[in-house]
Amino acid sequence: MAEIELKNVSYSFGDRVALEDVSFELNSPFFCAVMGPNGAGKSTLLKLMLGLLKHQSGIIRIMGYDVPREAGKVRRLIGYVPQVIDIDYRVPMSVEEVVAMAALSRDLPPRIMTGNVRRKVREVLELVELDDPSMQFSELSGGQRQRALIARALVSDPRILLLDEPYSMLDFNMKCEIAELLYRLHKDKGIDIFLVAHELSPCIHLEPIVILLNKRVYAIGRAGEVLTLENLRRAYPGLTEVPAGFILGEDHG
C-alpha cells in the first residue's frame, strides 16, 4: 500500500484550473519535494491532501485512508507546516502557545496546558533547536519562525510532515539549515517529508524525490532525472535561459 496515493485529482477555483489530472504514488520512506512555479497548484495540492479544500474529483489516499471521507484520521497522522506568509504575526502568541495547541487540539475545551504538554513542547523545541518557549512568535527571526512551526507539526508525533514553502522568506544559509533539519528528522525519526517549494536548491544535495508540477505532473523521480532542461522548459513557461544556466523565477512571498 502506498503511503500517499493520488489518482486523477483535479481541482478548480471557479473557471480557473488549479490542478489537472494529478496522479502519483509515494512509498515510505520518502523525502519528497514538489517543485513548480507560482500558481502551479502546489499549496492547493497540500490543502487537498489535508482535506482543507473540498474534494472535487479523483482519489486521494493517505496511509490507506480516503481523505475526503476520513480527513480527521488523516490529520492525526500528518503534521502540517503552512506558509509563513499565511500567519498573522500581529496576534500575540508565545512559541509555547503556538506549539502546545497542536498537542491540546485533540482534547475537548477547555484545553488546559498540563505539565505533560509543557514537557512535550520543550522536547520538540529542543529537537528543532529553539530554547526559549516564552518568546513571542512575532519576535523570532524568519528561520526561528519556521522552526517553531515545524515544532508545532512534530508535537503530535506525525508519520508524515507536509510543508508549504518552508524555504520562503529566508536567506540561503537559513534555507539550507531548514533543509538539513528536515532531512535529520527524516533520517533519525523516520518521518516522511512532503514539501512544496518553487526552488529546491537548498535541499537538492539531499537527493529528494522530485515531483515537477504545474497544474499537472510533468515528471517524478530523482532530482537528476527530473530536473532536465527539457522538463523545466515544459513546466516553467517563463523559463529564461542565460549563459550560466537558467532562471526559474523570483522568491516566493
Binding site: L52, P82, I87, V91, R111
Partner: peptide, 23 residues
C-alpha cells in the same frame, strides 16, 4: 469566552493551521 479564547486566538493566528489541527 474563557473556554474558547485560546482557540479564537489560534484561528486568527493561523486559520489553515488551526483547521489542519482539527479545530
Amino acid at each position: 469566552i474563557h473556554m474558547t479564547s485560546g482557540e479564537i486566538k489560534y484561528i486568527s493566528f493561523d486559520r489553515d493551521g488551526a483547521a489542519a489541527l482539527g479545530l
